[in-house]
Amino acid sequence: MKCTRANIITVFLLGLLFTGCKKEFTGLSTNANEIFWVTNNGADMPVRVMGNTASKIIILIVHGGPGDGSYDYTDYKTARLREKYGVAFWDQRNAGSASGNNNMDKLSLPQMINDLEVIVKVLKLRYDGAGIFLYAHSFGGLLAAGYLVKDSNQNNLRGWIEIDGAHNYPLCNASSRKMLMDTAASEVSKGNYISQWQNILDYCRNHDPLSSYEISSQTETFAHNAESYMGIKQKNSLLSLAEDPSDQLVNYYNLYHTSSGNDFLESLESADYSHQLYKIKIPSLLLWGQFDFTVPPVLGEDGMANLGSSYKKLVLFPHSGHHPMETDTDLVEDEIINLIDTFK
């Protein structure tokens, strides 16, 4: 073949493309910023590891949603944690930047628990000897609880942090309704946001979120609104959850506008690990926003009552709702650092 100028340019451009595409694991670092992928049963899930992996401690983010991504946690919310430890940002299947072809039919809680099992195995292989802690928020609390009570999975971890975690959906729904009604009655009597609270009160009195997914979903919407009526700062952009907004659009469309997505969400309504939490023996830190109407602090108290851990601690944050890591960032990070430094 003649070595023409066009050939040289083509080879150069292809070389440029492919030499740029590999971020190989190069060992432990005090300022790591690397990515690896795990492919499991139709889903390819990215795990971006940032921070101080040389600490031999990895905090694995189990994000909420379902359908959100881990990208949202890469900012100030984990800045101090990344200085001290490595933080692994995992996008669950059909969330964030996780991709695949036709995989919605495989989306289920047991499958996601299996995904988490594989992710932890890979982390242990890749960061040989590192201690792993789970950092599970909201829906991630359900997923983490399902992982921890299964087989001997908890032996792979040094501890776990549940932040406003929904490890018991029925309790979550019932307590959300009660908290909304109690607060609404109180706020109406105080004259705060009277029409909005009265609307919530009327709806919750007449609708039991345990009776249908639609009512549960509407109650959750009211729970989000209630936080803002109580003066809790909220970030309203869903598009910041993934690095590429079109990924997020696809994930939310799939979850909320397809039959397989709705089937999955409805299947979660009965998910309850409270009665199995006694199996969990590893150190457990429960962090809750006092004004979380979505996953109320009652869930944290339930965790304290049922966990089998010899070390378990519940911390309530008085200026937070469902996202204390956003509104009480320093306090949340202090608690996590204390836990890890104690049990690493």
């Binding site: 595409c21 590999k22 971020k23 190989e24 694991f25 690397e34 990515i35 690896f36 992928w37 795990v38 492919t39 499991n40 390819d44 990215p46 991709s99 695949g100 072809n101 594989v118 195995k121 890979v122 292989l125 890749r126």
Partner: peptide, 24 residues
């Protein structure tokens, strides 16, 4: 597509293996 970094998969024996140039 070809993913950045290493791609891992669980094989039938429950061991982690790497997939080379894996993508969709």
């Amino acid at each position: 597509t070809m993913y950045d970094g290493k791609v891992y998969e669980l094989d039938q024996d429950g061991n982690i293996k790497e997939r080379i140039l894996f993508g969709r």
